[in-house]
Amino acid sequence: MLNHVSVLVAEDESFIALDLALAVEDAGGKVVGPAASGEETLALLATGTVGAAILDVNLVDGDCSAVVEVLMGLDIPFIVHTAVDLPPALKARFSGLIVQTKPCPAANLVAQLESLIAGLGRDAPRPPPSAHDRGQALAQP
């Protein structure tokens, strides 16, 4: 279980974003986002509440390397979720990225994130996200 870990979902396709968000909530996590753009993702990361992340490579405003850099810098565990091979520049710059190829059932991706966090021994709950909480809206069927 995600034990209230705040998971940032960065994904521009609404269906995939909401599917992932609900899967995170199903697993006991708190959703930060979903964010559709790199700009929005960086703003959410700046709030300092993110404990883990699922990151789509092609966000609406393009390249996600700035986001990857911040995630690496903050030492936040994350999974890159992509339908394409990683851009060569990104691969060359960051080694050891954990990549999950689309399509992949959201529940599997979240389970993978859980084991990643467990492996790092960081499953202690992080402070819950502030007022910004879209999970409430998402929880309604």
Binding site: D19, L20, C104
Partner: peptide, 17 residues
């Protein structure tokens, strides 16, 4: 190839949702 994979991912999310 990218579009097709992405479309499968979108449809997968659509069905689950």
């Amino acid at each position: 190839d990218h579009r097709v994979k992405n479309l499968f991912a979108i449809v997968g999310g659509m069905v689950t949702l």
